[in-house]
């Protein structure tokens, strides 16, 4: 049985379930009933042209203000994700790697990571991690991603190159060990070498318990992060799902064929 077939089996407890999601931004509906089911261990790719609603989906899952959910639901391990504050979602294990990670001047990366990790642990009722233990852990992860130590002393993402910013996102992903990672246009602004380093970092984090949702416009990224399932989005809906070969097909013939399906 293919992985796709497994995914469609009903008896697997899904990790992330998006059901008939409808979302508005300032009176304009962006998502018109989007559904998606992601199980542990799976890597899903969501592809689609600009304006199809890919980033809106990632923002709504992470709880970014400014979006109005007018219908449908998002369940995470069976719980209503939409009812939770963004930080609660993070503590539960939802991680969004931002397309454009913000710069936070004056807050050192080190200090930020420690504060965020402990906030998550506290929310889960776990003990806070001491500074030495944290330092050790960050150093290990940073080393594996070729992130130089001095980057950790600088303000979060301040003065980082595009590649460094994306690596910093993956560093956080490795550190927080989330259950589901949503990678929003991770390839944007990266050259091929930077892309490879970032993809290696992501691949190292693949595990049977963890799911990934890779949002991308281009097939290129999927050469490095090979998905189990590919969804095509158009005009706020998933219009086709299939195996990784669907991505290649898109590369050949473009998105136009799906415009009408939407």
């Amino acid at each position: 049985m293919t992985r796709l077939g497994m995914m469609l089996r009903k008896n697997v407890m899904s990790l992330l379930e998006v059901k008939d999601l409808q979302v508005r931004v300032e009176e304009r509906e962006i998502l018109h009933g989007l559904s998606l089911t992601v199980n542990p261990g799976e890597v899903h790719a969501i592809m689609g042209p600009n304006g199809s609603g890919k980033s809106t989906l990632s923002h709504v899952i992470a709880g970014k203000p400014g979006y109005e959910v007018t219908g449908g639901q998002v369940l995470f391990k069976g719980e209503d994700l939409l009812a939770m504050a963004p930080n609660e979602r993070a503590a539960k294990g939802v991680f969004l790697a931002f397309q454009y990670p913000v710069e936070i001047p004056g807050v050192t990366t080190w200090n930020f990571l420690h504060a965020a990790l402990n906030a998550q642990r506290k929310a889960r009722g776990e003990d806070e991690m001491s500074s030495p233990a944290f330092l050790k852990k960050v150093r290990e992860v940073a080393k594996s991603l070729s992130i130089p130590q001095d980057m950790l002393k600088r303000g979060v993402n301040v003065g980082f190159s595009g590649g460094e910013k994306k690596r910093n996102e993956i560093l956080q992903m490795a550190l927080f060990e989330p259950a589901v990672c949503i990678l929003d246009e991770m390839d944007s602004g990266l050259d091929i070498d930077a892309l490879r380093i970032a993809a290696d970092g992501v691949n190292a984090l693949r595990s049977p318990e963890r799911a990934m949702v890779v949002i991308t416009h281009y097939q290129r990224l999927l050469n490095y992060i090979v998905p189990d399932v590919v969804h095509v989005m158009s005009k706020g809906r998933v219009v086709k799902s299939g195996g990784k070969e669907l991505a290649l097909e898109l590369e050949e013939s473009g998105y136009a064929q799906f415009e009408d399906a939407a």
Binding site: A62, G63, A85, N87, V102, I104, A115, L117, A123
Partner: peptide, 15 residues
Amino acid sequence: DESLLFYMRARGLPE
């Protein structure tokens, strides 16, 4: 800055 706040909250920090 709202976008900074959201980024930080998405990383698990309470408001």
